[in-house]
Amino acid sequence: MALTVDDIKNLSPKYKALILIAIFIIIGALYYSLFFQAALAKRAVLRSELDNLQQQIAIKERVAQQIDKHRQELAELQKNLQLAMARLPEQKEIPGLLSSVSQAGIKLGLDFVLFEPMAPVSKDFYAEIPVKITVMGGYHDLARFFEKVAKLPRIVNIENIKINRGKGDEGLRGEKVILTANCDIKTYMFLEPKDEKRKTANK
């Protein structure tokens, strides 16, 4: 039997309230199934896409920071390389540099027994110029000599130092003990690029 409007009017307030609640529940269920559930699903998809985009942005920001860091490190390395290359003498400066080394010892009263430049050893963009040295003098004079050589404006390294006391009369000069120092002194010469060498040869 169908429920008419008059039947509803004659119902008690309690039943009217129950019917009204049932109607709201049905409407709510229809809204949820037709609209709200779809909106929630779309929201979940958008949230997933947003999270993915945020992750990509974070990754790209980290990469950008690393790029900036590497650029700074590269710039610092290039600066240090330029400073080091500025301290490498050119070929025409080598005789003057070796003369500065020997003069530093002579001014301190040292006696050079051996000062023998060896054949250059080619590296990537520079050549190593080794010099074998045997020098005699007092302990403090030798120490000052090595210090002066190390402070020359061009790069000069002192290696393989061997110091012995002179034998017999060679071991004394008045009351001063005379030592004999054998060492290798290495300086470095900047090599021109091959194309620059060809240009120089063609002139």
Rank of each mutant, 00 (worst) to 15 (best):
N157C: 05
G96S: 11
K79S: 11
E128N: 13
P120T: 05
G109I: 02
M118G: 15
E93V: 04
S122W: 01
G168R: 07
L88F: 13
E175S: 11
A181Y: 07
N164I: 10
T180F: 05
A75V: 02
D169C: 02
L114V: 14
K92W: 07
S122V: 14
D111W: 04
R173Y: 07
G171W: 11
E170R: 15
V135G: 04
P95Q: 03
A84Q: 13
R165N: 09
I94A: 05
P117Q: 03
G96W: 02
N182K: 15
I94N: 05
A84S: 14
E93Y: 03
E175A: 12
G171R: 04
L172A: 06
K132T: 09
N160C: 03
K148H: 08
L77G: 00
A86F: 03
A84N: 11
S122E: 12
F112V: 00
P95D: 02
N160Y: 06
N80E: 12
L172N: 05
A143G: 06
Q91F: 08
I94W: 05
T134M: 12
E93T: 05
L88H: 05
C183W: 03
S122L: 13
A119L: 08
I178N: 09
I129G: 03
T180G: 11
P89T: 13
E175P: 02
L83C: 04
R87E: 13
V101W: 09
L142A: 12
N80A: 10
Q91N: 02
Q103Y: 01
M118H: 06
G109A: 05
A150Y: 12
E147C: 00
F112C: 00
